[in-house]
């Protein structure tokens, strides 16, 4: 009992408008109980297609629900993903304007930039490794367009994986000689460490998450392209952002990145 095409379009409109106006909407699964996971991805692609038609550039993808904890919480057994557009990119050591956001949270992640196309099915972590140009530290800012973060997996998938902004460190590290699961991360809020974790938090190894992404996109005849950015998944949990906060994150051997909040959140 999937949703009809007009219903999918209606939801895409609502999500678009919620983001543009910073007015979150009720959980989709409450308004549309029949919403299925494949509907949710179709909605995400509708919104992404509009962004492409509006001359925005697709820079890459984010992967979410990559920890056992998150998968248990959302009662799912695999990660999800979302699209990253140029309009979502923030420069390192710059300011993020909270007045354009709804209820943002920040997460530290290992990010990859591809040096080759990567097209599934059947992509293995070893193939992922060969396709990676470099690895670096990143922040992802997530910001649900659903009221009070009251989301299920289907809500967040339709809502582009709740993604909102991202920041990449300028440091570029080759993968050779790095053991990603063993890299530690520390996330600082106003100079206090508030979250730590290791690369293993991301499906045991962030390369596993990229292989998942390549193989999942392949089901819809899509591939990852040279130069695209992949945020591999949250390490150690998210932190609520408030006016005036300063955040920085450092991952061992991958550098540090920071961002400062300006402006006030919409109440």
């Amino acid at each position: 009992m999937a949703l009809s095409q007009p219903q999918l379009l209606e939801i895409a409109d609502k999500l678009d408008k919620a983001e543009a106006t910073c007015q979150p909407i009720p959980p989709l699964v409450e308004t549309y109980p029949a919403l299925e996971e494949k509907d949710a991805y179709q909605i995400q692609w509708m919104v992404a297609s509009r962004a492409l038609r509006a001359q925005r550039h697709l820079l890459g993808y984010k992967i979410g629900l990559t920890s056992l904890e998150a998968q248990k919480h959302f009662r799912v057994f695999e990660p999800d993903y979302g699209h990253l557009f140029d309009s979502m990119s923030i420069n390192e050591d710059s300011e993020i304007d909270l007045s354009q956001l709804i209820q943002p949270k920040i997460e530290g992640e290992i990010a990859f930039v591809l040096g080759k196309d990567l097209r599934g099915p059947g992509i293995t972590p070893a193939q992922v490794m060969r396709a990676i140009d470099y690895v670096t530290t990143s922040f992802e800012i997530i910001d649900s367009r659903i009221q009070n973060w009251k989301i299920t997996a289907r809500d967040t998938i339709a809502d582009n994986g709740s993604s909102s902004r991202f920041v990449l460190s300028g440091m570029k590290r080759r993968l050779e000689g790095l053991s990603l699961p063993h890299l530690g991360m520390a996330l600082y809020k106003n100079n206090d460490v508030v979250v730590t974790g290791s690369g293993a938090a991301v499906m045991g190894n962030p390369l596993n998450a990229v292989a998942f992404l390549a193989n999942t996109l392949a089901k819809h005849d899509r591939g990852l392209l040279e130069g695209q950015v992949i945020l591999s998944g949250s390490i150690g949990g998210m932190v609520t952002m408030q006016a005036g906060d300063h955040f920085s994150v450092e991952i061992q051997k991958l550098g540090r990145v920071s961002v400062r909040c300006k402006g006030k959140l919409n109440e």
């Binding site: 056992l68 530690g184 460490v193 730590t196 290791s198 293993a200 938090a201 390490i235 061992q252």
Partner: peptide, 24 residues
């Protein structure tokens, strides 16, 4: 401070962290 530490219970990852968690 940034050595990655992973705790497993019966093979499943249950916690990760880094020594920076201890007072920085």
């Amino acid at each position: 401070n940034l050595m990655g530490i992973t705790v497993r219970k019966n093979g499943a990852i249950v916690e990760t962290g880094a020594p920076a968690a201890v007072l920085g």
